[in-house]
Computed example of a mutant assay.
Amino acid sequence: MNERDETPLTFREVFDLPVSVDLRTAARAFGMCMGTAYRLVGLGDFPCRTVRVGHRHRVLTVNLMQALGIDERPVYADDLADGVALTLFD
């Protein structure tokens, strides 16, 4: 595991996640190590719903964001400058 995997995700990184993420990414969002994540999944106590796909666990980003208490995506000045946010309000 490299240093990047051990640091919690920033809000910006959370908002840029795809539709679903692996358990490692979800664990980083909560600031926990993989051992804790697997233990919580095994106990059925992971902070949000996980879906088993084969031998791996996936987490829907919408469920992850809800568990983190994030209801909507904020608009950043960079998004406005790039024209991305304008499509959100049309």
Rank of each mutant, 00 (worst) to 15 (best):
L68E: 12
G54H: 14
R56D: 15
Q66L: 07
A29E: 00
T36E: 11
T36C: 01
C48N: 08
D16E: 15
D16G: 04
V19F: 14
D22F: 03
V62H: 13
A29P: 05
A26E: 00
V41G: 10
T25Y: 08
G44A: 02
P74H: 11
A67I: 02
V62L: 11
G42M: 01
G69C: 10
L43F: 00
D71H: 10
P47Q: 07
F15A: 12
E13D: 14
L17N: 04
R52T: 02
N63E: 15
A29R: 09
V51W: 06
P47T: 09
F30W: 12
L68N: 01
V75K: 10
L60S: 01
R39A: 06
F30T: 02
R24T: 11
G35Y: 02
V21H: 07
V21F: 03
H55E: 12
R56F: 12
G42S: 10
T61N: 12
R73D: 01
G69T: 05
I70R: 12
V53D: 14
R49D: 05
Y38Q: 11
D71L: 13
S20W: 11
V59R: 10
V75F: 12
Y76C: 01
Y76D: 03
P74W: 03
R73W: 09
L60H: 08
H57Y: 14
E13W: 13
G44C: 07
Y38D: 05
G42K: 03
A26T: 01
T25H: 13
P47E: 05
R39G: 00
R56P: 01
P74N: 05
R73V: 11
L64R: 10
